[in-house]
């Protein structure tokens, strides 16, 4: 009984310590892009582009030279109309090279209201929050 209680006590302590140590912040993958130029207004979740997943499969130049994606979150005015026409994401996400665009939720899975941004280096000046 005593041992059981002690184990329980230890468990409580461990959980308490764990919750104290575990920070409640955003730890998005380095290079993830949140795209919310138009999503919020269209009542869709913002799209999240996982850079890492794509760089395993493609060189940078495939998107940034061949497909004409400009460097910089929010600089490409990507709309679903353009994607359906085969521009931007639609060059591959057409059911031939990659899965097609009817899987709305797979890209539009960001937390609503998040601004367009790159989840890069926290020391990068654009990522440092300015005090209000």
């Amino acid at each position: 009984m005593v041992i059981k209680q002690q184990i329980l006590g230890l468990g409580v302590i461990l959980v308490a310590l764990f919750t104290m140590v575990m920070p409640m912040k955003a730890y998005a993958e380095y290079g993830d892009i949140v795209m919310n130029n138009y999503a919020d207004a269209a009542e869709m979740r913002p799209a999240v582009f996982p850079h890492w997943f794509h760089r395993i499969r493609f060189n940078c130049s495939v998107c940034h030279a061949d497909l004409g994606f400009k460097f910089g979150a929010g600089k490409n005015e990507i709309t679903m109309a353009k994607i359906i026409e085969g521009e931007f994401c639609g060059a591959c996400h057409n059911g031939e090279i990659a899965w097609s665009i009817e899987n709305c939720d797979v890209c539009h899975s960001g937390i609503a209201g998040m601004p367009t941004q790159v989840k890069g280096d926290p020391l990068r000046v654009s990522n440092i929050a300015t005090p209000k």
């Binding site: 999240v48 890492w52 395993i56 797979v106």
Partner: peptide, 29 residues
């Protein structure tokens, strides 16, 4: 900061979106 968390825990994906759970966790890749 913990690195390479699965999408549902990374703070930018909505855990309530069914698409979030279809995504590959970075650690696996």
């Amino acid at each position: 900061a913990p690195a390479n968390l699965p999408p549902a825990e990374d703070g930018i994906h909505d855990p309530e979106s069914p698409g979030t759970h279809m995504l590959q966790p970075p650690k696996e890749a």
